[in-house]
Nucleic acid binder design. Sequence first.
DNA 1: TTGAAAGCGATACCAT
DNA 2: ATGGTATCGCTTTCAA
Lengths: 343, 343
Amino acid sequence: MNTHEPPSRRRRATLGDVARLAGVSSVTVSRVYREPQLVSPAARDRVEAAAAELAYIPNRLAAALASSQTHTIGVVVPSLTNGVFNDFLSALHNTLLGAGFQALVLDSRYLAANEERAIATLLGHHPEAMIVTGVDQTATARRMLEQSGVPVVQTMELTDDPIDINIGLSHPAAGYAALRFLLDCGARRIAHMMAPLDARAVRRREGFERELRANGLDPIVIHSTKPTSVSLGAELLGELLAAHPDVDAIWCSSDYLALGAMFECARRGIRIPDDIAILGFNDLELCAVAHPSISSVATPRYEMGQTTAEILLELLRGSGRRPADRRIDLGFEIRARDSTRRP
Amino acid sequence: MNTHEPPSRRRRATLGDVARLAGVSSVTVSRVYREPQLVSPAARDRVEAAAAELAYIPNRLAAALASSQTHTIGVVVPSLTNGVFNDFLSALHNTLLGAGFQALVLDSRYLAANEERAIATLLGHHPEAMIVTGVDQTATARRMLEQSGVPVVQTMELTDDPIDINIGLSHPAAGYAALRFLLDCGARRIAHMMAPLDARAVRRREGFERELRANGLDPIVIHSTKPTSVSLGAELLGELLAAHPDVDAIWCSSDYLALGAMFECARRGIRIPDDIAILGFNDLELCAVAHPSISSVATPRYEMGQTTAEILLELLRGSGRRPADRRIDLGFEIRARDSTRRP
DNA sequence: TTGAAAGCGATACCAT
DNA sequence: ATGGTATCGCTTTCAA
């Protein structure tokens, strides 16, 4: 039963309503919003008063349909819960908003089918550009993106066969570098902890394993299909030690896993880095402040967002000129801290 | 200079294009998407083939304009970086997507002016409902929401004067309860660590301080205008101890602050809970797995999202009937763990 | 089962 | 500086 009144259901004011009240044509009202300098101050004042009185909010849908400019950019990320993508999205927003563009963000929860649906949904909103995560789009999704006619950026990782523009870093190379780092720290029984839901984590693992084998060592990999989390790190550490009590280093494919593993070590009285060295991935803010501080492979998340936004803006506003190189490698960097011995 | 070809710039296929290719009228094509059972199988097949060939994606803007149904819900949260809102948004998405609704999410970065702008932007997309965080909207924003004619949910906290529907928990009550809990644990020199950017944190503090004073104790509050983070927790712990070396308990207004404070304690050799007890807020996933595990005030974030979505769906699809009570208190709960002594 | 015609609320183009 | 009119791509009557 109704215990209170809903907000007024009356029709929202339109451009025409404002025009009528202000005693001008609707074109004039439209101009007040788009090119105020072309409207006489007197008319402008009347329009503004009328708009305020009616609480007029322009209908962007109609505007977009008429102008075929939505000032919107579609973005698909695998997860909104993961700190990794927050940095990327922040940078994106920071750069885009100032230029009058708005990002429509959908998450795929690491599922290709969801990503395909999200891409279709976003394209239905007629964005002026698309940004997707990774390079593993389904054939259908890829075709939709190609047909869309708008610039497409694939981010976070690199491929030899991009749809359009590709900005990221090499994950196999990161895996290789992580292993080299741990070897240089003196580790020999090196395990890898990961959540293979993430295709990039799988590629990091490949680089890691290849180099491990090249050094005559056997890969120890422990993983779970659950999404990455601190508690998963603790859980996997338990499984790892049960199977391989003699590991002397662990590379965790996310800092959350690393933190969870560290907590579990503390709980079991295992010393870090003396008994086991721990290396994370991403270098989230907490790595530097943790105790012990966590060594990690730093990824340029903010930069990736910023570069992506800048390139798109240049493309959309400016001359429409494309970057000299369609493939931009932003690299990574290992930050050595207390959770690993010094190399 | 161009080093590669941009994706084809040709005009995207429209309903009319598909109709022409399939040899039917555009109404029939439209029906294939909305009411397939009204179209003969033969026509349907031809339309589907034509749509596939043209990689046709319906223009949602045009559809929304014509039908005045956007199947979209506008959401404004203060931050996308904060785990707190992720749980809320997950629940929202989970419930909404299945029902064919899509959430458009914008963040305000804890600034009322940004929130106002975000609300205006979202209303411009003609959502069928609006969800905003907290109850401190500007007068203008409030008026826009009221005039919008769509259901509005204010979430996360409660007010006596909601715009429309209000789902959340009482933050002053949480502050009160946190203090009672620490007193019951035997603490007497109790400090509060917070980031006052968040209006709800300010209200928690009020409940906390009021009860502290009622017990004849002096409030010790340490805060920073920076956004909450793990490193901020470590930093504030330093400031706190410099000013008040004798504190025996700290209530942190977020679990991130609590974690940072804990790391800093470990670094300084301060024992938890023996020297200092630490209580967090929100009960994020990491609290249970941290070492020592972190006591925290658990908030029903997922439930808030789910309840919000369910009520809106009922309102939008169903009879349009509103909940019996426009104000729903989902409460909170203190989870006692190892970072505080037992009460 | 199918289609013709009239909008939806703006913008673009061309006059005045 | 201002306005008339066609148009954007789709949905909604209403007829056939």
